[in-house]
Computed example of a mutant assay.
Amino acid sequence: MLPDSARALKAELSQRLAEVPPGAVVARGSVDGSGWSGVALGLAPVAPGQVHLAVRLLARADAEVVLRGLGAAALAEVDVRVIGPVRPLTAPPPTGDDDRWSPARLQQRSRPLRPGISIGHPDVTAGTLGGFVRAPGRPGLLALSNDHVLAASDAAQVGDAVLQPGRADRGTPADRVGTLTAFQPFSPTGASLVDAAVAALDDGVQADPGDYPGGPLAPRVSDALDVDPDELVERVGRTTGHTRGRISAVEVDGVGVQYETAVFTFDDQVEIEGLTGGFSDGGDSGSVIWRSRDRVPVGLLFAGSSTGGSAGGGVTFANPLATVLSTLGVAWPES
Rank of each mutant, 00 (worst) to 15 (best):
residue 1 M to W: 07
residue 6 A to H: 00
residue 12 E to C: 02
residue 18 A to V: 01
residue 25 V to S: 10
residue 26 V to R: 15
residue 27 A to V: 07
residue 28 R to W: 08
residue 32 D to L: 09
residue 37 S to M: 01
residue 44 A to V: 06
residue 48 P to E: 15
residue 49 G to E: 11
residue 49 G to A: 10
residue 51 V to I: 05
residue 57 L to C: 07
residue 58 L to A: 15
residue 59 A to G: 00
residue 67 L to Q: 04
residue 69 G to W: 13
residue 72 A to W: 11
residue 72 A to L: 14
residue 73 A to R: 10
residue 77 E to D: 13
residue 81 R to P: 01
residue 87 R to A: 15
residue 92 P to M: 07
residue 93 P to N: 07
residue 99 D to T: 08
residue 100 R to C: 00
residue 103 P to F: 07
residue 105 R to S: 10
residue 107 Q to H: 04
residue 109 R to L: 14
residue 111 R to E: 12
residue 115 P to W: 03
residue 116 G to M: 11
residue 117 I to T: 11
residue 123 D to K: 11
residue 125 T to E: 12
residue 128 T to I: 08
residue 130 G to H: 13
residue 132 F to W: 14
residue 135 A to M: 15
residue 136 P to N: 07
residue 140 G to P: 06
residue 145 S to E: 11
residue 151 A to V: 06
residue 155 A to I: 01
residue 155 A to W: 08
residue 159 G to C: 06
residue 169 D to P: 02
residue 173 P to M: 10
residue 174 A to E: 08
residue 176 R to S: 05
residue 177 V to R: 07
residue 178 G to H: 08
residue 179 T to D: 06
residue 185 P to F: 14
residue 192 S to W: 02
residue 195 D to H: 07
residue 195 D to L: 10
residue 205 V to L: 08
residue 210 G to E: 03
residue 210 G to D: 02
residue 212 Y to Q: 03
residue 213 P to G: 09
residue 217 L to Q: 08
residue 218 A to S: 15
residue 219 P to L: 09
residue 226 D to I: 12
residue 235 R to P: 01
residue 236 V to K: 02
residue 239 T to H: 04
residue 241 G to M: 09
residue 243 T to M: 06
residue 243 T to I: 06
residue 256 G to W: 00
residue 260 E to R: 14
residue 263 V to I: 13
residue 265 T to C: 13
residue 266 F to R: 05
residue 267 D to E: 12
residue 270 V to K: 13
residue 271 E to Q: 15
residue 275 L to H: 01
residue 275 L to E: 12
residue 277 G to M: 03
residue 283 G to E: 07
residue 283 G to Y: 13
residue 290 W to A: 13
residue 293 R to D: 13
residue 295 R to C: 07
residue 305 S to D: 04
residue 307 T to N: 03
residue 309 G to K: 06
residue 312 G to C: 13
residue 312 G to F: 09
residue 316 T to Q: 02
residue 317 F to R: 00
residue 321 L to F: 03
residue 324 V to A: 02
residue 326 S to T: 15
residue 330 V to F: 04
residue 334 E to V: 14
residue 334 E to T: 14
residue 335 S to M: 10
